[in-house]
Write a protein that binds this DNA or RNA. Sequence first.
DNA 1: ATGGTGACCTGACCGC
DNA 2: TGCGGTCAGGTCACCA
Length: 270
Amino acid sequence: MPELPEVEVSRQGIRPYLENQRISKIVVRDDRLRWPVPITLQDAVGCVVHEVARRAKYLLLKTDKGTIMIHLGMSGSLRVLNSDVSAEKHDHVDIVMETGLCLRLNDPRRFGSVLWEPGDVLQHKLIATLGPEPLTDDFTAQLLFERSRHRKAPVKSFLMDNHNVVGVGNIYANEALFTAGINPKRAAGNISLARYKVLVDDVKDVLAKAIKQGGTTLKDFTQTDGKPGYFVQELQVYGKAGKPCPKCGELLQSLKIGQRNTVFCSDCQR
DNA sequence: ATGGTGACCTGACCGC
DNA sequence: TGCGGTCAGGTCACCA
């Protein structure tokens, strides 16, 4: 589920229940996530969460002693509920607040992670080398253009590479390249500045729109039914191989780029 | 440095 | 009903 929009929607959803509240207990039912959940995570107990931030797809629960870093991987999701609600399958970690509410991570595939960084979280190994946030002014066509010169990797792989820009996952890479009219196989180094301008605008548009719409589905993070999820979006190409292109009617093609399913229109995307 | 691949996991789905 | 194969929204480590 999580691409950047869902992570941001999750951040907004959990924030009111965590900010300025003290952590009273952390329950780790299964520490076998992408990286083992560290024992030091318990250092967060007793701390007040003063900010719920986000960097790339990491949610950052900041305290005076350090930061809890949560990544949802491919299948993770978060809920806020009363801590006495019994855990279900794949409910691996609870961060229990003094209010009696807890943040509960469910992650069937265990590709997610929960880590503890006592120092500057932006210097953490997994975060320090990341590219700019797509929804800030740091993400520019000029940057993509310069970074991509002499690169022969497909533009789709280039766009999904966290070192160039964070938070563009498979769905939105497909969507943005479609909207921008760029063939996903085209070498990144072979795309003009003008076309990167279009692409950057379209990446921003599609992400912003998804966040906005995702927000509307998120009625109440404390509900136990209906997980806070993504919902059906107006996706134009993702998951629609073999169907007509929304622009020209030609059938959408699919192929694998970097092991990921890629859908595009061979007429509209050059 | 770059780019391509395997690996980490579970669950849903499809065809036999 | 069961079994095997395939696929899935991420991303790091490793090798040529």
